[in-house]
Write a protein that binds this DNA or RNA. Structure first.
Lengths: 320, 320
DNA sequence: GGGCGTCCTAAGCTAACCCTTAAGCCGTTC
DNA sequence: GAACGGCTTAAGGGTTAGCTTAGGACGCCC
């Protein structure tokens, strides 16, 4: 029984599958399967067994998850305690969806670290489902993205962070931008150029695509929203866009697509563990989020932060 | 940071030295030093530093030791949870000093496991100082030996288990047994034949030897009390003896040595964590200890249990 | 039935853990 | 100063964790 095995186990339980856990941890699937095998062997219980589609906990597994989760949490706490005792910069770990993690959150975190000295921030990108699990396992202190709800989000408090408007853009030369209102059927016939969160069924864009029944073959995933825009500007297809991120003057070469009801008013939320489980570091960030500085940072379009530092590879990064 | 490293660290802190931790864990001293080095490195803090004679915790170490202890405890709990869910026999881990662990506790545990079905007992031998640490680290559920007190025993409840009388024996042919009352000075001039707890300064015999200022060169340690008796019967020297364990008829070849004040009335105690930290399994054993069956078992002289099972090697055994 | 998504196993590798013995360092103590 | 107890470092070796790629087993769904 190692702490790593316990972490893997808990994450597999919270995410409901080994595949998802592997993705969240950034490792191959057998790595997760094997860690679990080792844990099963050392405890002498299957812990987590397949049942039809999906997996269920054994009675022993049900008891162990809670204990394992506590152990993982304590390990994180121990590291934080050492940092604190050293007077080292406090570390805040933020997780976000791809859309908001591309520019908005980096700008936010830079503003925060500039203002509050002695704070260091890291950012990881994950799916909406992962955000909840990362928070409850204390692998992240704050999650920024859509509101977290449902059974995976018990004990998590989501509060509105910022209002934004979701629009749709295409090349100015594209008939979509000029031919008046676009029908639902038409939306299924064009290419959708999306950032990685487009493949996340719980993200804003993912939900939209699912709702409109856009076939997967029509979805083209780009490493970032701006890359999708660039592709839209020079080629064909429609790209979702956060209105104010396009820049005050609009994007040269791009025009708005008049999808019915757009621009859609939406909210980003900041989520963290509720009650006495809220990390101290999350509380401090939340205080900052209420300031005008934070609001202003979120409206900046430049990001203002070196991409190397705050733009991790396409998928999730988990911090050790 | 591994669970093993944390266990070593906590034990070193509780016992106040690496040497003691190594002995308690049954490993070499560098093994402990190394585990600690690895932990220090992974946390980036010395945790435990030398200060003159003895070691003190760094500020970070002070924070970490509590968290580490919790983690180790949770790991033990997880294993117990699996056993319980399986309907496996409940495991009770008893620690005792050498004197009482040689025959009394084995007989006690056999009576207990005979009566309470679905219970499995293991026994480890340790010094008095170790007993306290083993309990607080949940490496043992119940400790049997002298009363545990002092700073290392906070949170531990010791209650009297049985009264016994400490006497002294030597070969019948030895003048000590026949020449009337023995002076203190005389006690320092004879060989003392003791079980391993004779080297434990906090054990009953150890305290006695220390009080009487018996020089170490006069102390000969045997693997068990009965081995010491056998040596006394055929050679020279004096051996402490629990009166009722000599057998109703006395031991052939041995006679009592009239040490002033002997036989000394004393108590064995059963100790366990107090409050809500008391292991459920310890509570059940305690209930048994109050029964006549338990009393009777402690008075039996045969032990009644295969030595191989309940007589671990000379020193401590720690269970994983 | 065929495809697909998901989990498991196999094989091979690297790195870390954990143990040992032997020897060095540095306090305290006589 | 010499001896000693106690912690550390060094060197070496066995075992296990933990990762990968490749391939097999099984249930679900069209």
């Amino acid at each position: 029984m190692t702490l790593n095995q316990l972490k893997v186990f808990v994450l597999a339980v919270r995410l409901g599958s080994m595949r998802a856990a592997a993705q969240a941890l950034g490792v191959s699937e057998p790595a997760v399967s094997q860690a679990l095998t080792a844990l099963r062997q050392s405890l002498g219980d299957p812990l987590l067994v397949r049942e039809g589609s999906g997996m269920v906990l054994t009675p022993a597994g049900r008891r162990v998850v809670g204990l394992a989760s506590q152990m993982v949490n304590l390990a994180v706490e121990a590291e934080a305690a050492v940092r604190h005792a050293h007077g080292s910069p406090e570390l805040i770990r933020v997780a976000a969806t791809a859309t908001v993690g591309e520019a908005v959150v980096p700008a936010l975190l830079q503003a925060y670290t500039n203002r509050a000295t002695n704070v260091e921030a890291t950012l990881g990108i994950g799916t909406v489902q992962e955000l909840a699990a990362l928070l409850t396992e204390r692998l992240a202190d704050v999650a920024i993205g859509p509101r977290l709800s449902g059974p995976a989000a018990v004990g998590i408090l989501s509060e509105p962070l910022q209002r934004y408007r979701l629009t749709f853009v295409a090349a100015r030369s594209d008939p979509l931008t000029t031919n008046g209102p676009v029908s639902l059927a038409r939306l299924r016939e064009v290419d959708w150029l999306v950032d990685p969160s487009g493949t996340d069924p719980l993200s804003e864009v993912g939900q939209l695509l699912g709702h409109a029944r856009v076939p997967e073959s029509r979805i083209r995933v780009f490493p970032s929203q701006s890359a999708a825009w660039a592709a839209a500007a020079t080629g064909t297809g429609i790209a979702p866009a956060v209105e104010h991120l396009l820049g005050a003057t609009g994007h040269p070469g791009l025009g708005f697509v008049p999808v019915g009801g757009s621009p859609f008013p939406m909210f980003w939320y900041a989520s963290m563990l509720s009650g006495d489980r809220t990390p101290a570091t999350a509380i401090r960030l939340r205080r900052f989020l209420a300031t005008p500085d934070a609001l202003q940072a979120m409206y900046r379009t430049d990001g203002g932060v070196p991409a190397s530092k705050f733009r991790p590879p396409v998928h999730v990064t988990i911090w050790n």
